[in-house]
């Protein structure tokens, strides 16, 4: 894809991001950070794409490192966000989580 098309995607995404994020409840700012953080772990897709066909072993090994890092970010981010969001409950709902 050419640079201008990519730039178009970027600019539109800025506006979508701004619109969506400005509606996030302030109660959920920490899950917002960890959840958006998990989304940035999608760089994993990029690391796999580069690792897929490299000829050089050195590059491949470093790519594996990048894959591990990106997966930690992606998987860890979603799991920890889920753990947090499970805890939020409104008044009146009686189910209690067992204490750690």
């Amino acid at each position: 894809m050419d640079g201008i098309a990519l730039l178009t995607v970027f600019v539109l995404a800025v506006f979508v991001g701004y619109e969506v994020i400005s509606k996030v409840s302030s109660t959920l700012h920490t899950p917002l950070m960890s959840g958006s953080n998990a989304i940035s772990g999608i760089v994993l897709v990029g690391t796999i794409a580069v690792a897929a066909h490299t000829e050089s072993t050195a590059i491949f090994v470093l790519e594996l490192v990048a894959i591990v890092l990106a997966t930690v970010n992606l998987v860890g981010g979603f799991v920890v966000t889920d753990r947090m969001l499970r805890m939020f409950r409104a008044r009146g709902r009686k189910e209690r989580e067992p204490r750690a």
Partner: peptide
């Protein structure tokens, strides 16, 4: 987020651009 969006440009990957930009905006 900005890192991921920029790497999306480098790799011509629109998903990385969108995802990174969302995180950057947040």
């Amino acid at each position: 987020g900005i890192t991921v969006a920029a790497s999306g440009y480098v790799l011509s990957n629109t998903l990385l651009i969108v995802a990174g930009t969302l995180v950057g905006a947040s």
